[in-house]
């Protein structure tokens, strides 16, 4: 049962990361690509972290994975913001 939940979470996480990558490769401009990349990847990473937490089952691991996700969230938010600002500055 636990393995099944973890498998479902992992597969959905991989789906979102895959979708984000396809978006980054296929979408026309910087802003669309950023949108696809950051949104889908953050969700994908969360799902994968949740799958790993379910597989491990310990509170310590769960909290560490949560911390990792929050740090990735912070980094991707700020870098996406900076890239978007830079791109807007260039286009104007």
């Amino acid at each position: 049962m636990v393995d099944l939940i973890a498998l479902l979470l992992l597969l959905s996480g991989c789906f979102f990361i895959f979708a984000g990558t396809v978006g980054m490769l296929r979408l026309p401009d910087v802003f669309c690509r950023l949108h696809a990349m950051t949104k889908a990847d953050n969700l994908g990473l969360l799902l994968i972290c949740m799958a790993l937490a379910v597989m491990d089952g310990r509170l310590r691991t769960t909290l560490l994975l949560l911390l990792i996700w929050l740090l990735a969230l912070l980094a991707s938010t700020v870098s996406a913001h900076l890239i978007a600002r830079h791109a807007r500055g260039q286009s104007q």
Partner: peptide, 20 residues
């Protein structure tokens, strides 16, 4: 490289990341 340091997001990033 960052033209303006007064972006609230940047300050948050530094305040969170450097101590960590």
């Amino acid at each position: 490289t960052v033209a303006s340091f007064d972006l609230p997001l940047l300050r948050t990033l530094v305040a969170a990341i450097v101590p960590l």
